[in-house]
């Protein structure tokens, strides 16, 4: 990658004896939407705090816009928009006051911020809430406001730590739509998530993380192609029978995962496999044929599901 906006080599972060991030390498190109996918505790948020030029790394090198964030913290942060996992808006202030004060921290002029606020309120669909105290907003609105706040300085890179965790499906879709617009405008996005659908929707390229290490890297489609089959057949035989039939099923497909409640069978043709099972005299109580997803990639790489 020529002239990446972000470049990390051997990035390691320890808290005492605990290694949260273990010698991680990655690059992010300009205009790219880059994702860190992994379960809670994988080290995603720790990496984000290092990229945000606040947390000090233990070892390795990091360059953001060609500068070491540890040596040029304020200079690097001037180019970043940060959306932390936990909203840290000032609940006692109104929507516009929050945007205004945050803009002032970038030393922006009153006039610039005032114009920007109108644009951001529209973007975040919060025009009608402009003078409402933040503590009275819904979770989805707070999230959109936090993203809007991160955009007040027109950053080159927007860092989003679990942007939709804790939101209901409708609020998530609104948020995805907003992030997609940013992507179209050419803003470089770096986001963490433990939702595979979110990663598939928003990321051009991602790394799959587990226990502080990168397990795989690529576009969502290429990862699925590399680590999973085209289709997945999910079958349930009831929690007691799942184990009984498992050995017989295993002979019928390329690969299989037995989860507590269901069995996942990896195949190129799910319907055909289901027919084969029925022919063999086994009757699943429920069955579902679906496309392989990043969830399956993660399961393949770590032997565990993303959300446990």
């Amino acid at each position: 990658m020529s002239n990446p906006l972000i470049s990390a080599r051997g990035l390691t972060k320890k808290f005492g004896d605990f290694t949260a991030v273990d010698a991680v390498d990655f690059d992010v190109a300009k205009g790219e939407s880059f994702g860190l996918l992994g379960p809670n505790g994988a080290g995603k948020s720790t990496i984000m705090r290092v990229l945000a030029a606040t947390s000090q790394r233990t070892s390795g090198t990091v360059e953001i816009l060609g500068k070491d964030p540890e040596l040029f913290g304020p200079l690097v942060r001037a180019h970043l928009g940060v959306v932390p996992q936990q909203d840290n808006l000032d609940g006692e202030l109104t929507v516009t006051e929050n945007l205004y004060i945050y803009g002032r921290y970038f030393g922006l002029s009153k006039k610039f911020i005032s114009n920007k606020i109108e644009e951001l309120l529209e973007f975040a669909q919060l025009e009608e809430k402009r003078d409402v105290k933040v503590e009275a907003l819904s979770g989805g609105m707070k999230r959109r406001l936090t993203i809007a706040r991160g955009l007040v300085s027109e950053p080159d890179i927007l860092l989003l730590d679990e942007p939709t965790t804790g939101l209901d499906p409708q609020a998530r879709h609104i948020l995805w739509d907003r992030l997609f617009r940013l992507k179209e405008q050419g803003v470089t996005l770096v986001l963490t998530t433990h939702f595979m659908d979110e990663a598939e929707q928003l990321c051009d390229r991602l790394v799959v993380m587990d226990k502080g290490s990168i397990m795989a890297e690529g576009s969502p489609a290429s990862l699925i192609k590399q680590y999973s089959s085209k289709e997945v057949l999910e079958v349930r035989f009831g929690s007691d029978r799942n184990k009984e039939v498992a050995p017989q099923l295993a002979t019928m497909c390329e690969r299989m995962e037995t989860l507590p409640d269901r069995i996942l069978m990896y195949t190129e043709d799910g319907e055909k496999l289901l027919e084969k099972i029925t022919h063999a005299g086994m009757h699943a109580t429920t069955s579902l044929v679906r496309r392989s997803s990043l969830e399956d990639v993660f399961l393949r790489l770590t032997g565990r599901t993303l959300i446990e």
Binding site: A78, I101, Y105, S153
Partner: peptide, 26 residues
């Protein structure tokens, strides 16, 4: 980035930005 962020100025006056935000809350 075209918002016109002047980092040296922030390095000089940042504490005042924080103080003014605190006074606003107060």
């Amino acid at each position: 980035m075209n918002a016109g962020i002047d980092v040296p100025t922030i390095e000089r006056f940042g504490a005042l930005y924080i103080a003014s935000a605190r006074l606003k809350s107060m």
